[in-house]
Write a protein that binds this DNA or RNA. Structure first.
Length: 416
DNA sequence: CGTCCACAGGAATGACGGGCGG
DNA sequence: CCGCCCGTCATTCCTGTGGACG
């Protein structure tokens, strides 16, 4: 009953205040705006390269790269959408298929997505890669068309496994009789070129388009344009807008981050019942985003990764800032037995640590201690309070936060 | 200046669950 | 339903190594 009245209050307040937003969907990053400011050059280039398709010729493969939030995906989708409309207009049999490789996860699922793109049903799993590829080829040839394949975040499948799929795709035209394929590879890692098989690279990057990060002024323009659609008139102060742009520019010029920041700022303002967004709201939004990102990452770890985090947590608490592999494994095994979980091998834990490092939750550095061996020095990139917050409401892990590992109290007096 | 610690991290192999084709 | 193949996680075994110590 009390709950009900609380909610009534919340809902009423929400409903009765005007709020700062006009249309907050505009700020989501999957929203594709009509205009893409400061990307005119890239749009033109991409358009020029794929234009031959309208006359029934295959276009060059394109390699698109730039950091996250520089508009690669938006520009590509924008141009492809326009192309499809134009193709329909002139009656060219063209279609495109956009796949995000990181979201797909594996080569198999990328291929499965491609099959779906040409309306070919394939099972989730079970078939060999080669089998799916053959089906894809056959289905495509039957369709008699030119297909543009956009592989977003293509580095994800190459770094994780190999470039076999990409290699096969670049060669697919040799075996197609009635259809043609062009590939747009999108990567946010410039070093990808070093990993790639030279044959794949030369074939894939017949054309290249580079996306530079936005600077603060450009970000500001982008935000301003989007804010006009998203916020009520006058609900967003100039200062708040500039601050969003400046904060995002300082960190890689990432437009996606800038838009997130703007949206969360608005939400913060709204929750506080303010009628306009101030710089203070932006600063709070920045903290909130960072905080949630980490909590989210921690919550989504597997059990053993969480246990490794907890082990580091305990070591840091007892010894100060450093922890090394051997110590971590010692604490980890003790925690495991405490939970009656069988521990993983040290080898496995070592790769878990590397994964946590890649996630930015830990920082692992290989150091040599000379006579005393070679190991990894591990620091936490997360505050201890955050660990507590993330794990304390987990029924199994909660009690381990205040647990005092035996090996720590014993060792502390023994060594160093 | 060689030794040797305490691991790093690669390769091969196994266990397992999901999902196919027959 | 069975046998088969797949991807993923984990183990086992292994070779490699920076640099303080003697």
């Amino acid at each position: 009953m009390k709950d009900a009245s609380i909610l009534d209050d919340v809902f009423d307040r929400f409903f009765n205040t005007v709020g700062v937003f006009k249309d907050r969907e505009v700020l989501r990053h999957d929203y594709l705006p009509e205009r893409l400011p400061h990307r005119e050059e890239q749009i033109r280039r991409l358009g020029e390269v794929i234009a031959p398709i309208l006359k029934g010729a295959r276009c060059s493969n394109i390699f698109v790269y730039g950091k996250t939030g520089t508009g690669k995906t938006a520009v590509t989708k924008h141009v492809l959408n326009r192309l499809e409309a134009k193709a329909k207009e002139v009656g060219a049999s063209v279609s495109f298929c956009y796949v995000n490789c990181r979201l797909a996860g594996t080569e198999y699922r990328v291929l499965a997505n491609l099959c779906q793109g040409i309306r070919l049903a394939v099972p989730f799993t079970g078939l060999s890669l080669g089998e799916v590829f053959d089906r894809f080829k056959e289905g495509l040839d039957m369709a008699k068309r030119i297909l543009i394949i956009a592989l977003d975040e293509v580095d994800a499948i190459i770094k994780a496994r190999s470039d076999i799929l990409l290699y096969e795709l670049t060669r697919i035209n040799e075996t197609l009789a009635r259809s043609r394929v062009s590939i747009i590879g999108i990567s946010n890692d410039l070093r990808l070129k070093e990993f790639l098989d030279p044959r794949v690279l030369s074939s894939l990057s017949e054309e290249e388009i580079v996306f530079r990060p936005y600077n603060a002024t450009e970000l500001r323009n982008i935000l301003a344009e989007r804010a006009q659609l998203a916020f009520r008139e006058g609900a967003l102060s100039e200062g708040a807008l500039s601050l969003c742009a400046a904060l995002a520019a300082a960190e890689h010029g990432d437009a996606r981050r800038a838009l997130d920041l703007l949206r969360v700022s608005g939400e913060v303002a709204e929750r506080k019942g303010a009628s306009n967004v101030t710089e203070e709201h932006v600063r709070e939004a920045e903290r909130l985003i960072e905080h949630n990102k980490v909590l989210d990452a921690l919550a989504n770890l597997t059990l053993h990764s969480k246990l490794v985090m907890l082990s580091v947590y305990h070591l840091i608490r007892a010894n100060g800032y450093r922890a090394i592999t051997g110590e971590i494994y010692e604490v980890y095994t003790e925690i495991c037995s405490e939970l009656a979980v069988s521990p993983l091998t040290q080898r496995r834990v070592s790769t878990l640590v590397n994964e946590l490092d890649a996630l930015g939750l830990l920082n692992a550095q290989v150091v040599s201690m000379g006579r005393y061996g070679r190991t990894k020095r591990i620091r936490m990139e997360v505050t201890r309070t955050l660990i507590k917050e993330a794990f304390s409401n987990d029924s199994r892990l909660g009690r381990l936060i205040d647990y005092e590992p035996r090996c720590l109290s014993k060792d502390a007096s023994g060594r160093n």
